[in-house]
């Protein structure tokens, strides 16, 4: 079992490393990731949202819907924990919720 898991892990790692061979160099300012979409945010954040912290403006405005989803993830986790460990429980004396 352990050998099998180790082999799977090594295999997955090998595939991932194979993928990195064609990647742009680390820290290359001209890589596609750094030149395609993100300059727009840096250029226009102040003008559109009056927010100097670009991460905040992208987080809550340009990609605000992601953040709504993220808040919902947190809410789901809270409700899940209550559902699993709290809701099935008898309260002392009082009625149950």
């Amino acid at each position: 079992m352990k050998i099998l898991s180790l082999m799977t892990a090594v295999l997955v790692g090998a595939v991932l490393i194979y993928g990195t061979l064609d990647m742009p160099k680390w820290g290359d300012p001209h890589s596609p990731a750094n030149t395609h979409v993100s300059p727009y945010y840096l250029h226009h954040s102040l003008e559109h949202t009056a927010t100097p912290n670009v991460v905040t403006s992208v987080l809550a405005d340009y990609r605000g819907y992601d953040t709504l989803g993220e808040t919902t993830v947190i809410f789901t986790a809270g409700m899940a924990c209550i559902l699993l460990l709290r809701a099935g429980r008898k309260r002392r004396g009082k009625g149950d919720v």
């Binding site: 559109h48 927010t51 905040t56 809550a60 405005d61 605000g64």
Partner: peptide, 13 residues
């Protein structure tokens, strides 16, 4: 509108 967006971000936060 730009300031409104800033305030909107604050409310959301």
């Amino acid at each position: 509108p730009a300031e409104a967006r800033s305030l909107g971000i604050l409310g959301v936060e």
